[in-house]
Amino acid sequence: MGNDKRTVLITGFGPFGEHSVNVSWVAVQNLKRRNLLPDVNVHIEEIPVDYQEVSQIVTELWEMEDPLLMVHVGVSDFVNKITLEQRAHNTGYYLKDIKGKTPNKECCREEGEECICAGLDMSRVSAEINNADNELQAEVSYAKTGRYLCDFVYYISLSINKSRSAFIHVPPLNQPYTEDQLGEGVAVAIFAMLKQLPK
């Protein structure tokens, strides 16, 4: 019976800068540990804040797992809600990763389109979170990924399958949400996204 479940692949990032423990990975692990999405096969993966490795790992995950949905989770000091990114960008990656490097030509995919919008309607996902019986709040963003690994990883997935890719930003821990609330917020968002996909 369990083998009939479709796979949802969720990534969180490893440490970088002042984030010695990346809250995105904490939230993803919390969701998995508490089995908050029991009707799907949840596969989680921690990915490094490294342009070259991210590009290779995410492409391989798509090829190996063929997930129904690929959801990337990142932390942002600039958000205080569950923030759903609607699009990602191809160029302008001048910020250095944990190895002190930038991608070739500061670009994600050479000759790729400058901006890719997700096929999922993030405003519908946001509304479901805001209308749910919890203390979580959500918003849709078109630019908060910034030109760093969050935007970079999202663009890779959108370029592979924009109908089944998503990016969720979470705020730092206890600003204002606990670890459990962050796990629940990501789970509610993913559940809402799955409603938009063919079964």
Rank of each mutant, 00 (worst) to 15 (best):
R87Q: 15
L149E: 04
A127P: 08
L149N: 04
D151V: 01
Y94T: 15
E85G: 05
S126P: 00
K81L: 09
E111V: 10
Y148Q: 01
P48I: 03
D50M: 02
P48M: 04
E128W: 01
V79H: 06
C108L: 03
C150L: 00
F152L: 10
L149I: 15
R87D: 14
E128H: 01
S126I: 03
I44Q: 04
Q52K: 13
N130P: 06
L136W: 06
S123E: 15
C117G: 06
T102L: 00
L68P: 06
K162A: 14
N104G: 03
C117Y: 13
I168T: 07
N134F: 07
C115I: 15
W62Y: 12
S159L: 10
S163Y: 06
M70Q: 11
R147E: 05
S157N: 13
I57G: 06
A118T: 14
M70L: 13
E128V: 03
D151N: 14
D121E: 15
R109A: 09
A166W: 05
D66V: 11
S141A: 01
D121A: 10
S141C: 00
G74Y: 05
D50A: 03
V75W: 05
L84R: 15
Y155Q: 10
K99C: 11
P48K: 04
E114M: 02
G100E: 01
S159F: 10
G74P: 06
T59R: 14
V49L: 08
C108P: 06
T59D: 11
C150V: 01
T91K: 07
F167G: 04
E60I: 07
D151C: 14
H89Y: 15
A143G: 15
C115L: 13
F152R: 11
F78D: 11
K99P: 01
S157H: 08
I44G: 05
V75R: 05
E63M: 07
H72G: 01
E85L: 05
G92D: 05
L68R: 12
A132G: 08
G146P: 09
K81C: 06
D121T: 13
N134Q: 09
V75A: 07
L136A: 06
L69M: 15
G100P: 02
I44E: 02
S76C: 12
K105H: 13
D151M: 04
K144T: 12
D97E: 08
G92K: 07
C108W: 03
Q137M: 09
L95F: 02
T83S: 12
C108T: 10
E85R: 04
Y154T: 05
I57P: 05
L120S: 04
C117N: 13
V71A: 10
Q52I: 08
Q56D: 12
K99L: 13
K105Y: 11
G119S: 04
H89A: 09
V75N: 06
G146E: 09
Y148R: 01
I168Q: 07
A166C: 12
S163A: 10
N80V: 04
T83P: 08
R164G: 03
N130C: 09
E46Q: 15
E53W: 09
I57R: 14
H169D: 00
F78I: 11
V125T: 00
T91V: 07
A143L: 14
Y148P: 00
V140A: 02
N130D: 09
A127L: 12
Q52V: 09
L95Y: 03
I168C: 07
S163H: 08
I82D: 07
V140W: 02
N90R: 11
